[in-house]
Amino acid sequence: MKQVEISRNSFLLREGMVCNNLYFLEKGCLRGYYNLDGKEVTYWFGFENNFITSFYSFISRKPCVENIQILEDSTLWGISFEALNQLFDIHNDLERLVRIINEQYYIRLEERLMAMQFKTARERYEQLMETSPHILQRISLGQIASYLGISQETLSRIRSQA
């Protein structure tokens, strides 16, 4: 793995690029977002001790449709697709670790889908505060609102009633 230092407001990945690396976030914060009709739609945040990549692009070897933006000066450790597969050939137990990472990603993805489909905006906000209470100190309210699928005004109303 190679250490990568990236400064705030930089991009780890931009839409249209093929994601060649799987990263472990040692320090910092970042977000994944899509551009939809000129609007940024945030769909995940990454914090310390998370694995970060565009899973679709990394696995399929196709261009990604998302952007990964660095929100704080960050330290990541990256391994290329090719190097990871070479390690799989040598160390079969490493495949198990990556399978577990993929399973955790899938669980988070399904939990997010269920929350967006079946929970109210208030319930989504409360769940976010329960699982990531530090988020208000690290992420802008506009990006949090986008992640929750609500306007910044609605988020302000929910917060004032909490």
Results as ranks from 00 to 15, higher is better:
150 I>L: 04
137 Q>H: 11
59 I>S: 11
147 Y>R: 04
35 N>Q: 10
154 T>P: 06
131 T>N: 14
125 Y>L: 13
42 T>A: 03
49 N>T: 04
1 M>S: 09
149 G>D: 01
95 E>W: 03
131 T>G: 07
27 K>V: 15
99 R>H: 10
49 N>R: 09
80 S>D: 01
115 A>Q: 11
90 I>Q: 14
74 S>Y: 07
136 L>G: 00
6 I>Q: 04
139 I>C: 05
158 I>H: 01
2 K>M: 13
105 Y>Q: 10
47 F>T: 14
1 M>C: 00
90 I>A: 14
123 E>R: 02
146 S>C: 03
53 T>D: 05
119 K>H: 12
2 K>R: 12
50 N>A: 09
144 I>Y: 07
34 Y>N: 11
19 C>T: 04
27 K>L: 12
6 I>C: 01
5 E>D: 09
9 N>H: 05
151 S>C: 01
34 Y>F: 15
59 I>W: 07
140 S>K: 05
68 I>T: 02
119 K>C: 14
44 W>R: 14
2 K>D: 13
37 D>W: 00
15 E>W: 07
148 L>H: 02
121 A>N: 03
47 F>Q: 03
54 S>Q: 01
108 R>P: 06
129 M>V: 07
51 F>N: 10
121 A>W: 03
72 E>N: 00
131 T>F: 04
143 Q>M: 15
50 N>S: 15
130 E>M: 08
85 N>F: 00
29 C>M: 08
39 K>I: 12
148 L>Y: 00
30 L>A: 10
